[in-house]
């Protein structure tokens, strides 16, 4: 039943322990930004942040607020708004350890976890310096013809997958539609913490069309309602990104003082909304 798993945003954030491996989606796919601010307020530390497979404002916020020890990602960028300033500064200064990756390697390593496998092989990558800076990746031979070399990617098993979705049903099933990287993340992680725009008094699994885009409550540890929970990022199909607010973030975050100012402003706005 959803009642026992339905938490406040603060209680949901408290479920993320210091040092956890936390998997998050890219900025265009259902980021739990309100929950991210709640995590920062709670002062979470030493996260191993896994971007699936890239991140933007969310990673920049967590890094700028000192919550992250290690970031594993294919890229972090604010897209048309330029580089992610707190990420760039922290990686250059060595304050945050980076495990550089490539998109399909992150997807495949999560799929290994989905299957309960120790690794999945991948093509590509050989000859990239990524292989040199990732001693945890190994070269193996395809046991079958043409016996070509492959890269073995150890399974990634996040402690928690955190994302935002349009709605959940009364049983704690979450509707994600076509955003199936959320499904992979949720299957691979030990549990998912999900914020939703609303909890609806329906049963997603009783409807063939809804069920096809639903994540089963089997994988969901807790849910919190957060109206506009992705803001200022978009929630695909529900609302667009707030371009002015994103631009303001990009400008302020270019300095440490500006970043602190943005954070206090965002927290105040979020507080007023709750």
């Amino acid at each position: 039943m959803v009642s026992k798993n339905l938490l406040s945003l603060q209680a949901l954030a408290a479920r993320v322990p210091d040092g956890a491996m936390l998997a998050v989606p890219p900025d265009y796919s259902c980021v739990a930004l309100a929950a991210t601010l709640a995590l920062i307020r709670r002062g979470v530390r030493r996260l191993h942040l896994l971007a699936v497979p890239q991140s933007g404002m969310q990673a920049d916020l967590l890094i700028g607020a000192g919550c992250v020890a290690t970031i594993e990602c294919a890229a972090v960028t604010l897209g048309e708004l330029g580089p992610a300033p707190r990420f760039t500064e922290a990686v250059k200064s060595g304050r945050v350890c980076i495990k550089d990756s490539t998109c399909p390697a992150i997807h495949a390593a999560l799929q290994a976890s989905e299957k309960g496998l120790p690794f999945l092989p991948s093509r590509g990558i050989i000859g990239s310096d990524l292989l040199r800076v990732r001693p945890d990746w190994a070269l193996i031979d395809n046991p079958f013809p043409p016996h070509d070399p492959l890269v073995a990617l150890p399974a990634l098993k996040p402690d928690i997958a955190l994302f935002h979705a349009p709605f959940a049903d009364r049983h704690g099933n979450v509707w994600i539609g076509r955003r199936r990287e959320l499904m992979t993340m949720a299957h691979a992680a030990k549990e998912s913490l999900v914020t939703v725009e609303e909890v609806r008094d329906i049963d997603l699994m009783a409807d063939e069309i809804f069920a096809a885009g639903a994540l089963s409550s089997l994988y969901v540890g807790a849910i919190a309602e957060a109206k506009n929970g992705a803001w200022p990022l978009a929630l695909p199909g529900v609302y667009e990104a707030d371009e002015a607010a994103l631009r303001r973030y990009a400008e302020l975050a270019s300095s440490e003082a500006g970043f602190a100012h943005y954070l206090s402003e965002a927290n105040a706005a979020r507080h007023a909304a709750e």
Binding site: Q54, C73, A74, A75, A84, S101, T102, A105, L130
Partner: peptide
């Protein structure tokens, strides 16, 4: 920003 999917 990072290598994105280039290495594949």
């Amino acid at each position: 920003p990072g290598s994105f999917g280039s290495a594949y």
